[in-house]
Design a protein around this nucleic acid. Structure first.
Lengths: 195, 195
DNA sequence: AACTCGATTCTAGCACCGCTAGACATTCGA
DNA sequence: TCGAATGTCTAGCGGTGCTAGAATCGAGTT
């Protein structure tokens, strides 16, 4: 039994190594640089070993996406927990979200742009993805305002942040006035005060 | 002289054929299917001919993006011209934008997501791109509201639409409630009435 | 009308991609 | 100690974007 357990553990370790290496490569040089050959070389195994863990490159991207989604959720919760009042919480959320997108563009893409073979917005959506949306909902649900369902409001606010993040990174928006743009979003979209 | 002119004309024709063929291929089967080999075969020339017109696949994407941007601008103007009042105009704009993104995903990607080697948000940005933004500004600039610069407001509203379009197409958002989401954007973000 | 020579186009090939069949090595249970 | 099962590797498939150099074409000149 113990031998099998050791093997399972080693296999799990190697799988984590693959995901971590893929992520590091993607963050450093972009997803185009994450080739099965390079990845295999980095983990010091041959290419087919990758395929004994994942069905293909797509699934490796998916694994990085799940890891990243968990981190994003944690970052959002940490940021909002440290803020007082609805406005500050929404602002902190927006800031943390865009910060994550800017600091981890490759991971962000794995979560929200690339095809990682993951089911989204469904019952069988993996927990980390559901939880990342839940983290958004926790803060944004409180400022949906009258007549707007919290989940739908969260989707809208999230989409706006996503649009800002992607257009800015793709060079379509000048990065200078991000702060002001976020302020417009926060002040107009969210229904903040009781007053 | 006339011989040279004919050659120039034929060359320009062939260039248009390349762009049109690339676009058609992309719209039918996605950009991954637009390979230099397939493209060359379709226009009945060899691969190197493509490179006598464009520096590479990237520039071909850029050419499709410019063509698409002009069409998007026209579609936005047509939609807003047929609408009465600020609210109807903004709603028509949003609808036309998302409609374009849904009907021409490959072209939309060429304009807003892919690397076509084009300079965006700069002085030397190609005219069609500037004009597409101008088309947005014409309608959205009127509903920026007090204290918000029209250009910046346009960027924010545009980003929100872009986020909705891309997240929905990538399967991250369920497509069912798009209409409601747009209504939230329109009602909350835009400052509509004089009242 | 034949020829020359520059412009044009093609063939063939580079290094790389994701992925996999089948050979080889290693480890385990009897 | 041997046979089988498991694990890993080598080698290769068909594809990618791109390009050097050969071959062809055709316009202007004799």
């Amino acid at each position: 039994m113990s031998v099998q357990e050791r093997k399972q553990r080693e296999r799990a370790d190697r799988e984590r190594l693959i995901v971590a290496t893929a992520r590091e490569l993607a963050e450093r040089q972009g997803w185009d640089a994450v080739t099965t050959r390079r990845l295999a070389e980095r983990i010091e195994y041959s290419q087919p070993v990758l395929y004994s863990h994942f069905r293909g490159k797509r699934e490796i991207i998916g694994a990085v996406a799940l890891e990243g989604a968990a981190e994003l959720a944690a970052a959002l919760r940490a940021a909002t927990a440290a803020a007082d009042g609805p406005r500050a919480r929404v602002a902190a959320l927006a800031h943390a979200y865009l910060d994550f997108a800017e600091r981890h563009p490759a991971v962000y893409d794995a979560i929200f742009q690339l095809d990682g073979g993951l089911p989204y917005a469904r019952d069988d959506t993996p927990e980390p993805l559901k939880d990342a949306f839940a983290a958004l909902l926790e803060t944004l649900g409180d400022v949906a305002g009258p007549g707007v369902e919290p989940g739908l409001f969260t989707e809208v606010f999230w989409s706006s942040l996503h649009g800002l993040a992607t257009l800015t990174r793709a060079g379509r928006l000048p990065p200078e006035f991000t702060e002001t743009r976020v302020a417009v979003l926060t002040d107009r979209l969210a229904v903040l005060g009781p007053a």
